[in-house]
Amino acid sequence: MEQTIKSGVYKLLEKVGDQVNFFLSFVRHLLRKGFEWNEFLRQCFIIGYKSFPLIAVTGFILGFVLTLQSLPTLKDFGAASYVPGMVSVSVVREIGPVIIALISAGKIASSIGAELGSMKVTEQISAMEVSSADPIQYLVVTRILACTFMIPLLTLMADAISLFGGFVGSNLDNKVSLHLYFNKAFNALAFSDLFPGVIKTVFFGFAIGFIGCYHGYHSNRGTESVGHAANSAVVSASLWIIILDGIAVQLTNIFAYN
């Protein structure tokens, strides 16, 4: 029993050490000359543009369902006019960033994990290393930065689509003009709602890129490890998003609302 606990702790510490080492390696290569702009833009296209349909549908459903679920209750209290404000505050402040980050973790972290894992298994990463090219700079730095840059943009777009989903949901019950709906939605929002929501998505994006790259880059030899890398990337990234959100909410409460 004692031995099992010891070995468990040892493995955990080893993993933490590995991740810290990988992070330091990322920082070192980020500061090096010769940033891979083309690969960075290609990754932005893959992560941003190719994820957009999924994010758009998710955002729309989010606003739509939130409206349909809350409208009957608020109507009972004669507060149906508060629905746009309620949807906008909850989507922009919390639900949008977290749900979009979790969806992105499923799509992007798994795809990065599988891609790098497969490159590792087929010795493509080793081939880069032995040719004196820099796989961290080419593969890791570009992907992490593309995630860090694109996830906030995707979240902002999803937030906007979500509000539109709320508008469609409201119109199923009662006719509301687009202008009036968005007027009410934006009136309820303050800078202190938008800013923390956007800032935390930067960290979510970094976590998704970093964890996807870490698991892919450290996958073992063998095809099974590619699946394992993709799976671990999604699980770890999702967990980190929840943890980071908890921290972000506490910090927001301290700095923005007090």
């Binding site: 490159m119 010795e123 493509q124 080793s126 081939a127 290393e129 032995v130 004196s132």
Partner: peptide, 17 residues
Amino acid sequence: EIRLKLGFLFQSGALYD
């Protein structure tokens, strides 16, 4: 620098796919 003088042909070719 040393690796620049070494060429390594992998079993699978290891082409960037």
